[in-house]
Design a protein around this nucleic acid. Structure first.
Lengths: 197, 197
DNA sequence: TACCATTGTGAATCGAGATTCACAAGGAGG
DNA sequence: CCTCCTTGTGAATCTCGATTCACAATGGTA
């Protein structure tokens, strides 16, 4: 047998992700997911103990990819880059990806969900914040950045950038000038906020 | 008759607010609200067309007070204060109040709700952001602050500070060192982020 | 007293989804 | 061919909270 037809389980995961991508969690009901995957509602329960379990898995795979991408972006800056530049690279990457897929980004960053899925969401946000906090600490140790409460700065930046980009008070909500312009403005903001010289 | 017993309508509003204060929207079901107000569930519908309408009213009254308090804080700085100092005062006030009542603050700022209530929530967030944006613009016009995308900075600050203080990735979630220490760290962060000299 | 408006009651009803379950439909092994 | 196991089906069921509604009280007015 060829690998032409993905197994049902995978089709369910993909269907759920796609539905969330353009309608948020509300659009991803069990019936809708099953329909998009081309199976009956009951079939979902042959592969997942519950809808939440499926969501958790979708979450993990998407967030892992995001985190990896941001780490790579920081690493790719090379040895000559300053800590602040590395952090700007992280947020620039974050921003470009979020702007490309705002609905999904919103779902990952802030949209509310059932407790178990929420726990997963918060765990990944914390990983993003830790990534940022580590960058800040490195910069402070190297004397490039001013002393500061790194946890607070990291949380404010992760939360704030997420909000500013895809949140309900995003400037984007009304009229999207140009993604690259926004990315540039965000880069400036991050630079100032971390205390870049 | 004296004014000793508040009218039912007011008791329902207060009950809803108190429930949200320490359990978020999830805790504020119609039955719970009615019970706390000392009436039957059906009574709520004698005073409000729906649960959402009641929430909208709770929202308005709380947010109006918050906004007023922040404006006053900015104004009280006097004529000698710089734009950055005024903005720091706004966020310091915001932070103290949020730290005193984190659950309510989170509900007002970010917790998701039904669309109609959400519209109200977003409207007030925008007013906070506009307040900040106006302060930024004044500072730029006066040559005190660097040119920047004021809407983005304002959105990132409002969202970010809310998140950092009471959000799911708040450093406070695990161990509360000291409110004033956090307020101080936030003041520093805001100063840097707006480009204070 | 009779009448009507307002306010309160709380059990019954609704609605929207998630979840279950009795019943196929293959397919592998004996 | 028989049996067991896995996977799929989709209508029926369950859950849970908002909402309704037939039925009191209460109080004011004619």
């Amino acid at each position: 047998m060829g690998t032409l037809a993905p197994p049902t389980r995978d089709r369910l995961l993909v269907a759920a992700k796609e539905l969330i991508e353009d309608g948020g969690y509300a659009a991803a009901s069990v019936v809708a997911i099953a329909e998009r995957a081309g199976v009956a509602a009951g079939t979902l329960y042959r592969h997942f103990a519950s809808k939440e379990e499926l969501f958790v898995e979708v979450f993990r795979s998407v967030c892992e990819r995001e985190e990896r991408t941001m780490r790579v972006a920081a690493a790719e800056m090379g040895d000559t880059a300053s800590a602040a530049e590395r952090l700007q690279a992280v947020f620039t990457t974050f921003a470009r990806r979020a702007l490309r897929n705002p609905r999904l980004a919103w779902a990952l960053i802030a949209e509310p969900v059932d407790p178990r899925v929420d726990a997963e969401r918060i765990a990944y946000r914390e990983r993003y914040a830790e990534l940022v906090a580590a960058g800040l600490s490195a910069g402070i140790a190297a004397g490039e950045l001013p002393r500061q409460d790194v946890k607070l700065t990291a949380a404010a930046l992760v939360g704030g950038c997420g909000e500013a980009l895809v949140g309900p008070l995003s400037p984007l909500s009304a009229g999207d000038p140009d993604a690259e312009e926004i990315v540039a403005a965000l880069r400036t903001f991050v630079g100032r906020a971390v205390g870049m010289r």
